[in-house]
Design a protein around this nucleic acid. Structure first.
Lengths: 211, 211
DNA sequence: GTTTTTGCACTGACCAGTCAGTTCAAATAC
DNA sequence: GTATTTGAACTGACTGGTCAGTGCAAAAAC
């Protein structure tokens, strides 16, 4: 007899509790930062006792590290999927980048708190989860780099572009534009924001209106 | 009788102490975050007594807020200067943006810790210095927006571009690329990084090498 | 003689992590 | 089907330590 509602691996109740803790932690840490967020707050928002946090995670930092891994996993999967879908549909590499921009925006719209938290921690040094963060960052940027490299190999992009730097710049463009969108003009539609970034990507900023 | 090394206004000795405290605080907070940085640490790194911190600043948060204002003041001055210099030399608005990108890179190369700290705090909510941060952010982005608007008015840029969003995206592009440069490939030259970003700005990513 | 800095002891709040005890659902016994 | 056992999951009061901010007398700088 199996348990009534099995998730993939791991006992159901425990998994549900961990999920609640992730959700509570991500918003609190995004708002206040890691150090300013107390374990008591996380427990309270998740609706569990403090002891439960320590039953499920070795420490506050471990909870945070697993949260990071979890979130970036979702993002890279989504980016990769966007790139592959475009390739299957016979699109160019610019189309792939454009699709990835959209996938990035969709992700940020869905998980704004996670994105905030990620940006806030990414360039810090001297932190316990530094190495976790490096690994996880590289996974995400690598997806963009791969598309750029394929584009250079296929002659679609200039072979003079600097792949890692251009990838960083593209990620930064989307990240900052999206966070500003969420923070300062949340009423705008995703399509709107996507259109503006597309234009920038395709160098259609200079030059008069298409009229 | 002028003091030997006058900064604008304020008694010299006091100003020197405050400067030491800014420098100590900025690196520590960039590395560890605001909450994880103690006043004792700041005092120790600055080489002054803890009491001196409180003689010069009302509280830890006030020290931080003034630090923010100070740093962003330097940045906006530098951006504005770059834009104006280009205008005087009869450059286009793209030239102005390019000069501002360079000014941004120079700033980040000179004050990497401040930049880190700024990014880490910018999209947080529920923090005491939230409003300070908003004001100060707007000052910096506004300089870029002004150039974009002037370019649209003069017909150099498409009137379909979204000025605030494009400004955000450009700032993000430079910010993230530069932070990655500093963190992960610090051996590269500023010119190198600038060239890569210039290329992206001018839409010279697509298309074969100029050979 | 006024301003600024020092050094250091002290307070009170806050917080990560612990642990002895409780809950409860499923398994086993009858 | 009812009673009993088991153990994973959870609880929340408690502890030991940390830290922002204070108070103040004496020294140093100007």
């Amino acid at each position: 007899m199996e348990s009534s509602s099995a998730t993939s691996g791991g006992s159901t109740r425990r998994e549900a509790t961990r999920q609640k803790l992730y959700e509570a932690a991500v918003t609190l840490i995004a708002e206040q930062g890691f150090s300013a967020t107390t374990v008591d707050e996380i427990a309270e928002r998740a609706g569990v006792a403090k002891g439960t946090v320590y039953y499920n995670f070795a420490s506050k930092s471990v909870l945070f590290e697993e949260l990071l891994r979890h979130g970036v996993g979702l993002l890279t999967a989504s980016l990769r999927e966007a790139a592959e879908r475009t390739a299957r549909d016979g699109g160019t590499k610019v189309d792939a980048l454009d699709a990835m921009i959209r996938a990035g925006l969709v992700f940020i719209e869905r998980y704004p708190a996670f994105t905030q938290l990620y940006v806030a921690e990414l360039w810090r040094t001297n932190r316990a989860w530094q190495s976790t963060l490096m690994v996880v960052r590289q996974q995400a940027v690598a997806v963009v780099e791969d598309v750029l490299r394929a584009g250079v190999a296929g002659g679609e992009f200039s072979d003079e572009i600097d792949v890692p730097l251009t990838a960083s710049a593209l990620v930064g463009m989307v990240l900052v534009a999206a966070l500003d969108w969420q923070s300062f003009q949340p009423e705008r539609s995703l399509d709107d924001v996507h259109a503006a970034l597309s234009r920038l990507l395709q160098g259609r900023v200079s030059g008069r209106s298409a009229g």
